[in-house]
């Protein structure tokens, strides 16, 4: 590839580069952050990156919004963008909202029960509970609960 085309290749795929960066950032946040709400935010970024991937595929160079004129006199010279990815992503957005809402609702319940939304504290609390189980149920079994 000559220099000019390499540059064009990189710039021309800007959406896809952004998709990769967003996706990896989101996934990293989910894994690395200990705060449950931040995890949900990371998950959101991760899902949003996918919306971008899909919508980028629907764009056609020079294409306009895929709406036919009301008189249905369609000029064959006009290029339309592909509407299907948009429709698919509309569904995916709804799924994303539902996931976020449910995740946040679970966090509220976790906060009520554990009094914290930090993963480390929750794990510590669960470790204590497991140790109690161990003591209560494990010893007589000669094993670990």
């Amino acid at each position: 590839m000559a220099d000019g085309t390499t540059f064009e290749y990189i710039v021309g795929h800007a959406n896809y580069w952004l998709f990769s960066v967003l996706m990896m950032t989101g996934l990293y946040v989910v894994v690395a952050r200990g705060n449950l709400v931040k995890k949900i935010v990371g998950l959101n970024m991760f899902q949003t990156s996918v919306f971008m991937l899909y919508i980028s595929t629907g764009k056609i160079t020079g294409g306009t919004a895929p709406i036919f004129p009301t008189d249905m006199k369609i000029d064959p010279a006009v290029v339309y963008s592909n509407p299907l990815p948009h429709v698919l992503i509309l569904t995916a957005i709804v799924v994303g909202i539902a996931t976020t809402a449910l995740g946040l609702a679970l966090i509220i319940r976790i906060r009520e029960e554990y009094d914290t939304i930090e993963e480390d504290d929750i794990l510590a609390a669960e470790k204590l509970m497991a140790a109690e189980d161990d003591k209560l149920h494990g010893e007589s079994m000669g094993g670990r609960a």
């Binding site: 989910v30 995890k39 998950l43 799924v95 996931t99 319940r109 976790i110 029960e113």
Partner: peptide, 18 residues
């Protein structure tokens, strides 16, 4: 602990579905 189990499953399940 069912709550944290559900939360963990939500995170992993959503990553899987995505």
């Amino acid at each position: 602990r069912a709550l944290t189990a559900a939360y963990d499953y939500l995170i992993m399940g959503t990553i899987g579905a995505t």
